[in-house]
Nucleic acid binder design. Structure first.
Lengths: 138, 138
DNA sequence: TTTAATTTCTATTTTGAAGTGGAATTTTGT
DNA sequence: ACAAAATTCCACTTCAAAATAGAAATTAAA
């Protein structure tokens, strides 16, 4: 699979946050811990805020926190916010009309696999990213 | 999934060729039947020729034919030629080191699914794109 | 041998994602 | 009130994919 780089970044933000003890994550702290260009990360955080996935706390000692419980934020929510999920739902050959009745040449083979991918993105939550074994690296 | 647009184009070329009775496919004929910008398609055909997936026949009444038997051309071969397969093999969070011993937070959940996708691309051939039921559209 | 139908080559333009820069705004601790 | 620490906003640059342009080269039919 190929998520956009921005989606990768966004997922890494959540993955880091859920596995760190901090309560509030300043942009600076995230910059220091994730390997993402500073300005780009700041813009991305603002974007995620607008989509109500994280909440910003302004001013001194401010930062970002989850906007809702981690088990209510799915990977699809995150991908949808930063690049849109539509790309992942479309026909693999790029046809507009591809479905069971008018399938493209790959539809029958690809569709079940695509469905698994979508289920994965829709059903996996940020809570699931929590490290159980203590061997993750960032 | 999200193949690059160029990969979509390339797959559509093969999908069309395997389902059409013609022996030799001129660029013009392909332009008329596939919905791909003319110049871009021509360049792409040249590229696929260089990767030995199709063969070009120059001159009058020339065109393109499969360079080998359709069941010897996999989807992965095609994707690899036009955009490279590496993107699809990498860690979903974009880490360099992600494996069983040093997994990212998604590795255990994502890896089996990624493997299925790679198997799909590696094991599906152009011959498999041949329409059995006569209900495909291009 | 001419000519028409092709592919091939080299270069440029456009577009959108990714990345950068700097000033403005908000809030809190002192 | 002030200053520090933070987010936010607007504009710009860079890079690679996608798309376009035109001339050159090749071949076979007539």
């Amino acid at each position: 699979m190929r998520l956009s780089k921005t989606s990768e970044y966004a997922l890494r933000i959540f993955s880091f946050m859920i596995n760190d003890d901090k309560q509030v994550f300043s942009a600076k702290y995230l910059v220091n811990n994730l390997n993402i260009p500073e300005k780009y990360l700041r813009n991305l955080l603002t974007k995620l805020t607008k989509f109500n996935l994280i909440k910003s706390i302004k001013g001194r000692d401010g930062g970002f926190v989850f906007a809702k419980n981690a088990d209510k934020i799915t990977l699809a929510d995150i991908v949808d916010a930063v690049e849109g999920m539509d790309k992942y739902e479309k026909c693999i050959l790029g046809f507009d009309y591809c479905d069971e009745e008018r399938p493209c040449a790959l539809h029958h083979r690809w569709h079940p696999l695509k469905q698994q991918i979508l289920d994965f993105l829709n059903n996996t939550t940020v809570a699931d990213l929590k490290d159980k074994e203590g061997n993750l690296r960032f």
